[in-house]
Design a protein around this nucleic acid. Structure first.
Lengths: 207, 207
DNA sequence: GAGGAACTGGACTGTCCAGTACTGTTAGCG
DNA sequence: CGCTAACAGTACTGGACAGTCCAGTTCCTC
């Protein structure tokens, strides 16, 4: 048997549908994906899809919210930085690079586009994604900055604002570019350069 | 006769269709808007719509690119700042506030969402919007910063990067919030606060 | 004020798709 | 082994919508 396959047949089908739906929605959007497409991709009858998910909207909401799990990775990433004055810049730089690399992965950007594109059709979904994903990471980053400030490594009034500025300096360019273009737009050296420049500006403002 | 109405009947219809299409697409998205909706809203027969625009895609592209005109306003806004050392902060602050107010108007954000949502269906359109809108404003802002740097008011290596940082500091928070929520999210005092904090961080980094 | 181009209104085709229905088959559980 | 719920396959309903067609009307132009 394979690694992570759930025991029951039903659970297996459920997971297959979720995966197929995620792939399909990401590739072709909500309106561009039919339930038949999903059933076919999951190698499952349409009837079974409707057995597991009441309708298309519910399925969509489910697969979007399921990806919020991946946020944990980001949170762990920003949760802790060594509080060492000498290597502060280097530590922040490393954080920035991982931050950028993670958030500019095609999957992440594609999902972001998907949520934004349907934010008026599913306003609750957009809000939930924003709060459970985006804001949690920023809150954690703010905690980290606050800790660094308490130890005299940063000069910070409003830690959440500082976290917003940090991510804005890093992400504004590449994320925007990606939002308006279909395919990935950045090479690793470019991303590193953004990280570098962003961290330098941040430290100039906040050290 | 009214103010800006074009002379011929044909030109009047053309404009009515454009306006109706803009309204409809903004409100309900590309897929959510039917050609019948547009015809009805423009008080025009569907036949006439197809007389003026080959098909739905062409119409959509047209109305999106037409809004690029409004960019001129933004360009004028960032094109010039008084080069006065004493009031630099105040001048930048005023620029920042106008910048934020303009870009967080519901119409602007809605259009942005519209383009992003359909960037994979119409990649050329997304790219065009990005280059003719976004990048032109940033380039102009970069010129302004370069001029300020030449006069010793700012310390700038890469003016375009500085412009990106400036807009990232200002816009990252409100624009993101707006992208994931249906309706406008910000009050004027909040926007002013973002402008204030953003400009302070920018000057700390670049003066 | 006559001719023609643009317009109206509504019917129509072809297609796509969400969701349902039904008949038979398979997998798991006691 | 035998029962049952979940499954496959496929056909079907009902509705939406892009784009076309046509017969009659209105507006502009010469």
């Amino acid at each position: 048997m394979e690694a992570n396959e759930p025991a029951g047949r039903s659970a297996r089908k459920h997971q297959a549908i979720m995966e197929a739906a995620t792939t399909a929605f990401m590739a072709k959007g909500y309106a561009g994906t039919s339930m038949d497409d999903i059933a076919k991709l999951a190698a499952v009858s349409k009837q079974t899809v409707y057995k597991h998910f009441a309708d298309k909207e519910k399925l969509f909401a489910e697969i979007v919210l399921a990806t919020t799990d991946r946020i944990e990775t980001m949170i762990d990433l920003v949760a802790d930085i060594p509080a060492d004055a000498d290597s502060l810049e280097e530590n922040l730089l490393q954080l920035a690079r991982q931050f950028l690399t993670t958030l500019t992965q095609p999957q992440v950007l594609q999902l972001r586009r998907l949520v934004i594109a349907n934010a008026d059709t599913f306003p609750d979904l957009g809000a939930a994604w924003y709060e459970q994903g985006f804001e949690r990471v920023l809150a954690t980053l703010a905690d980290t900055f606050q800790r660094l400030a308490d130890q005299g490594l940063l000069r910070v009034d409003d830690a959440l604002l500082a976290a917003n500025h940090f991510s804005g300096l890093l992400l504004w360019i590449p994320v925007n570019k990606a939002m308006f273009h279909g395919s990935p737009q950045h090479t690793q050296p470019q991303l590193d350069h953004y990280a570098d420049a962003g961290v330098r500006a941040f430290l100039a403002a906040y050290r």
